[in-house]
Design a protein around this nucleic acid. Structure first.
Lengths: 128, 128
DNA sequence: CCGTATCCATGGTGATACTG
DNA sequence: CAGTATCACCATGGATACGG
């Protein structure tokens, strides 16, 4: 049996629906994980860089989401014992295997946005 | 500007992080959407069939998640005016364009599960 | 058969302030 | 610079009962 501690990192509820999709969702789901993953997909980033790059994120949430992804072994945290302190984050090897999935998601999302913006889809509720 | 009504159907918070990943997440995120999408990917299903197929889902949640995906135009609801009533659900054309993304997610999830089960990853906290 | 309505618990998230 | 610590909100989702 797999072990875990808290919150979202590997949500037991979702991992057993047969198809792996739910497992993927439990790893990349989370308010800010897509945004973080997008950045780390291009390489290593410092804590402060991530914070600046991701608009609107609080330190609390940035750290929380990074920690969860560390637990799930897709993100790696590297601490340089310097003054001032420096901490870098990057995808692990396992994290990098997500690339095709991440790309597929970005691509569909962008196409979907185009569809909506083109007005060919109304996304309901205009008169609600 | 895009319009929307409630809850999760197109979460404004998530759609503006530049990469389309977050948009995708806002459409397929949700406790039961992966499970539902997995089923509908193979074809049309009746309400009752979905309910039976997805273990543990309540009627409330099944309907709620289906309605959200209807709003987002990826799922189509077809009502047959018969007695007894019959309602079928299927992916829309737009919904079917998600196939590559869905497949990528399933594939990565399954590989990830293998990695974990193989013990090559410990998923933390064994001694926590 | 296919849902709605209602109530309620949980925890994910945000805001703010503080620390090594 | 890179985080912790606390508090509180409220949307998400669960259980149960009822309706066309």
């Amino acid at each position: 049996m797999r072990k875990e501690t808290s919150t979202n990192a590997l949500n037991e509820k979702m991992i057993n629906d047969g198809c792996g999709m739910a497992l993927s969702m439990s790893v990349i789901g989370g308010r800010w994980k897509p945004a973080i993953l997008c950045r780390l997909a291009y390489g290593t980033m410092r804590y402060g860089e991530l914070k600046k790059a991701i608009d609107g994120i609080s330190e609390r949430m940035l750290v929380a989401q990074l920690r969860e992804m560390e637990k799930d072994r897709i993100v790696q945290r590297i601490v340089y014992p310097e003054v001032p302190p420096r901490v870098e984050y990057q995808l692990t090897d396992l994290g990098r295997t997500m690339k095709p999935m991440l790309d597929a998601m970005s691509e569909w999302g962008n196409k979907y946005r185009d569809q909506i913006d083109a007005g060919s889809i109304e996304l309901l509720s205009v008169g609600e």
